[in-house]
Design a protein around this nucleic acid. Sequence first.
DNA 1: AGTCTACTTTGATCTCGATCAAGGTTTGCC
DNA 2: GGCAAACCTTGATCGAGATCAAAGTAGACT
Lengths: 249, 249
Amino acid sequence: MPQTVPKLEVNLRCGDCPIRHRAICAYCDEPELERLDDIKSYKTYKAGETIVWAGEEMPLIGSVVSGVATLSRSLPDGRRQMVGLLLPSDFIGRPGRKVAPYDVVAASEVMICQFRVAKFNLLIDDTPALERRLLDMTMDELDSAREWMLLLGRKTAREKIASVLVIFARRDAELQHSELGDGLRFEVPLTREAMADYLGLTIETVSRQFSALKKSGVIIMEDARHIRVPDYVRLLDEASDDSDGGFIA
Amino acid sequence: MPQTVPKLEVNLRCGDCPIRHRAICAYCDEPELERLDDIKSYKTYKAGETIVWAGEEMPLIGSVVSGVATLSRSLPDGRRQMVGLLLPSDFIGRPGRKVAPYDVVAASEVMICQFRVAKFNLLIDDTPALERRLLDMTMDELDSAREWMLLLGRKTAREKIASVLVIFARRDAELQHSELGDGLRFEVPLTREAMADYLGLTIETVSRQFSALKKSGVIIMEDARHIRVPDYVRLLDEASDDSDGGFIA
DNA sequence: AGTCTACTTTGATCTCGATCAAGGTTTGCC
DNA sequence: GGCAAACCTTGATCGAGATCAAAGTAGACT
């Protein structure tokens, strides 16, 4: 279970970034924030655009400001597995790394706050607080990756779909500053194909399980991209998910 | 692809630890090694013994000196997925964490070099080099976890078995300071059940795929726990594995 | 040595999700 | 509006791996 940053400490902003810049600025003192400000720039990518190609030089380090990006790896014959989902405030890149190990692809229009690599590495070297923050974030990511391993290895297709819906629901609630609970409505920010890659399924199975959950009354599909959940606990239950992200029924 | 510590920098020892204590001591200066020495102790666990229970208090922080331990998570109904394999020099625990998110189980007799939690946390706070080392290690682990996600989501049973054999071969070569190559022989340090949990398979499928690889001549089984590989490249090929860990054919 | 227990292998059958194949729907562009 | 391209759904069938069942094997203890 990822240990999340206490809400109060999340509110620091990285200069004028339009998000709560949890990623790297929490715990930073003002001087460091200023130095970050000096070396950062924004860039947006269109949906479907590949931001970084696996195996090529890692051109950036930074974090997602808005939109959804994906990390994925492929086998030589083309089979593809998504290995991470990057939501607003998530960090991209690794200090000191030269070659990107994954494709980074924009799943929607994505804005990234990026730092110049060399300068960011320098900044890290003399900012232990920043390094500590990166360590905490990386450990949270490791926990998420391991949670996902449980899903990939042992959950049924139906449970996988329910699990990913819970993730989307939580993301949406956080974005809207709304509460999780019965009757919630949220956007599905990935195509069926991207979900299939995330869940280790085929696109047809994803589609069929959406239909099955609809028929069972667990979800109401306004359209392919918008879901309503009459009974949130029911959805959690379908996901066989322990870690409820702090939701109390 | 995990960035590994350059070989030369790995040779520092944590005091009198009987392993190359890559885990946390590389990059440490002498004074820090001494402070680590002061707060460490050794403990051994029998094969099958649970070292830490998921959900309970995390009693230790440290690293594996010898043997093999496993990290695993379970679903409420008992389905189980291994989420990490701890080999000698791998690190256990997370600075600042109170509750263990996974079961840690000894797969063989395991010796652990453990540090008193409170003191280790203090040491980290004023040793940036140690923190940096932990960050690098955690990022390597994250890369491994993601590599494993590709295996769990997209590889066939046969590829999964070949992949895990490659891991065991590499571990054995490192332990014996021998070279990877044709004719190598190594130990399988997990039961069929543990491998099944690691690979997201059943024990019967694991057994059958061992038999199938034997029949194809990819491996020669001396007994259930000892494997000989006539053609290492063939095994790598069966694993559909890109990352060859630096092996040059 | 003999027995127990844990581990492994093999066989028969079933099932969930993949694959193959059409249609249907939405979006954007002319 | 009409068309094209991308995306989504549904149906029919297949097959890899799960499940159920039964032997075989190897340590460990007496």
